[in-house]
């Protein structure tokens, strides 16, 4: 293994671990002001929105490919299916779409 790549991997590992671990070292949890705690409770849902869009639009050659996948996932999830089933449905429908339609 080249030394340079090894240092690269170690460096990347450190700067990735740092933001992951820092909050656990800095905060005990539950000691932040109430408003900040409420905002932090919102973070998961806001993050999910930002993780889905615009990323999902960019997975295919046209945005319709991703939108179709997102729509299928939305419908299956809305019916109340398990997440694994949601994932598999989106994959199967998009495979079918590529094979038979486009």
């Amino acid at each position: 293994m080249s030394n340079e790549v090894l240092w690269l991997i170690i460096g990347m590992g450190l700067v990735t671990y740092l933001p992951r671990v820092a909050p656990f070292l800095l905060f005990k949890g539950k000691e932040l002001p109430i408003f900040v705690q409420s905002v932090l409770k919102n973070v998961p849902y806001a993050t999910l929105g930002a993780l889905i869009f615009p990323g999902v639009l960019l997975i295919g050659e046209s945005i319709w490919y991703g939108l179709l996948g997102a729509a299928i996932a939305f419908i299956v999830a809305y019916i109340g299916a398990n997440v694994v089933f949601v994932v598999l449905s989106a994959i199967i429908v998009l495979s079918g779409y590529s094979l038979f339609i486009s």
Binding site: F53, G69, A77, Y78, A90, I91
Partner: peptide, 29 residues
């Protein structure tokens, strides 16, 4: 599409019960 479908699968059940969750996700998106 798998990871995006997973994010949607995690978000939708919470959206159903709460307008707040819908706003949070929509504004961030």
């Amino acid at each position: 599409v798998a990871l995006y479908a997973m994010f949607i699968g995690l978000l939708v059940p919470s959206m159903k019960g709460s307008a707040k969750v819908v706003y949070l996700a929509a504004i961030a998106a």
